[in-house]
Design a binder for these strands. Structure first.
Lengths: 330, 330
DNA sequence: GCTGAAAATGTAACCGATTACATTCCCGAC
DNA sequence: GTCGGGAATGTAATCGGTTACATTTTCAGC
């Protein structure tokens, strides 16, 4: 591999000059600049990123630590982050942690010297603990967990869920089931809270039989829907903690010959791309996921640039009620 | 930030010993090993990745260069690669190139010193040109482009498309439209070729009016379907170059009040997760995308380990016909 | 107790860039 | 022609590790 020394020798200059040429320093004659450039391309030289970041203390990479990579949510998120990063000439180092504290800690550790900043999504409250061991000046942005003392962006889960349930109530539903997300998941907990608030506000008593726990996957939604079908008196609407489970529920209901929304209304949360193509199209709370990713990246880059105080701003992005045919007969 | 020197000083040993402890060298007493470990954790030491890879010439990162990050295909692919990488303690550096030669070249350049190997997916034939400028020993795996002289994995597009069209013919269709993928896209071209072969084998003449070009997005599928609806005599089946376009086509047909599959059969390619949830569920050619990603990673790691000869093996993964209700009335 | 080989540890070169500082060059002013 | 000062270039320290080689320690064998 060609190094900067090879280029310097071949061009008859010092390594400093070569370095200056590549970093656009104004301290080089146009003539030498051209000469160095030519030699560099002839030799197929490209700077060694590790060496460069060792001395310059900049990696031009940001890390994205996610609980998982399965499903459209994360792919959209990554896309948003990448778009913003690419504009600034940054690369993305992605890692999935599966949400276990030990794995998160390991991942965070191994990021040192690799990235200039970190976007961490850890739905389990407290799972961001390992992040605290980082030096206080290291730029971090937490997604989905209103971290104590960290910059963070969260989704307005409670409000979104409340609006959704209010919508169902307005449609005349009184027995509204909810498919909950995983127990330790903060988004899931907040959505559940919004559901309860809406019921309480409407003077509807909760029924534990209508609260079924899933794990945010479509298959768990399928199973949960089958359970809900056996409730007596049967629920007339299902609010799923996310779209994936709602999609699974739709499948279960269709298989059982239930008409949607006439016999059972179904609603989800997230508005993943699939939602508009299900049968019937799914009512949901739209969250601009790739926008969320972009926003996270922007905030992180701010922190990387500032490098100073950790203002620990919290930001909440709102959801938007999207009413489609799964709750709204034409 | 704590460096290896700090740890060495605090533990009363040399940097070499600390390094040995962290790399599990057997040349350290159990006693010193423990002492160093303790000091390291007390000081919150974690090795600087850039420094480490500069001297060891290993980054423990592999690069994944994709044309885009939009849609489920890439997210599934990344998931597969990541799974395999994680098992081996590697991280993933993802970059989207948007398929422009210049961008690909830039990305490949900037990977030097950052990654130990590269998985490049570049649907446009010839787009992998920049890869040739890499030193011959650098491990590369090409996805979707049977690169000259490179390791590669491709999908059996032609065979898959042929089988699909044969299935449609077997269902009695004679006027079968196809929504093509982007012109420069190799997968798209091969699928089209399979379509033509199946028609020819059945003695059906091609009709240019039934061949509409899309760009692999759902909206282009929507538009294409509207065009096809105007064909005279109208086609009775649509084979879309991928699932995303098929999904768009389904939307257009439903909006036009066309019954599926009675009035018009629809088939896709890829079997993205969404396909089983559309209305009606979509007949398609299943490609194990995350499996493809895993396989690519495995092959790349082999190359990284061998580091020698470039055997340039080509591998073709088959597709599997998945017949669902969109072509098969119950 | 001494010897010598093996085991444990230390020293310092090196990886490939950046950059502070030193040096040389160039050119206008006097 | 000399001088001064800014522009261009060079020298070498540095970033934080790894590792070849040098040195010290340990301990079995006599």
């Amino acid at each position: 591999m060609t190094t900067i020394k090879d280029v310097a020798r071949a061009a008859g200059v010092s390594v400093a000059t070569v370095s200056r040429v590549h970093n656009g320093s104004p301290l080089v004659t146009e003539a030498t600049r051209r000469r160095v450039r030519k030699v560099a391309t002839r030799l197929g030289y490209s700077p060694h990123a590790a060496a460069r970041s060792l001395s310059s203390k900049k990696t031009n990479v940001i890390g994205v630590l996610l609980p998982d990579l399965y499903g459209e949510f994360y792919s959209e998120l990554i896309r948003g982050v990448d778009q913003c990063a690419q504009e600034r000439g940054f690369h993305l180092l992605v890692a999935s942690s599966h949400n276990e504290r030990a794995e998160i800690a390991a991942a965070v550790q191994s990021m040192r010297g690799r990235v200039d900043g970190l976007i961490v999504m850890s739905p389990a409250p407290g799972a961001h603990r390992p992040v605290k061991d980082l030096p206080a000046t290291f730029p971090v942005l937490l997604l989905g967990a209103a971290g104590t003392g960290f910059d963070s962006i969260t989704i307005a889960n409670e409000a979104g869920a409340r609006e959704m349930v209010q919508h169902l109530i307005a449609k005349g539903h009184r027995r509204i089931a909810m498919i909950l997300g995983p127990k330790e998941n903060q988004d899931a907990a907040e959505r559940f809270e919004g559901y309860r608030q809406a019921l309480a506000a409407a003077g509807i008593d909760e029924d534990a039989a209508l609260q079924v726990t899933g794990d945010f996957t479509d298959t768990s939604g399928y199973d949960a829907a089958r359970t809900i079908l056996n409730s007596t008196p049967r629920a007339t609407a299902i609010f799923a903690g996310n779209d994936a489970m709602a999609v699974g529920a739709l499948g279960a209901l269709r298989a059982a010959g239930i008409r949607i929304p006439e016999d059972m209304a179904v609603a989800g949360f997230d508005d993943i791309p699939m939602s508009r193509y299900t049968h019937p199209p799914l009512t949901t709370v739209r969250v601009d996921i790739s926008g969320l990713g972009q926003r996270a990246a922007v905030r992180l880059f701010e922190a990387v640039a500032n490098h100073r105080r950790h203002r620990a701003r919290r930001e909440v992005v709102p959801g938007q009620l999207i009413i489609r045919a799964s709750t709204d007969s034409p």
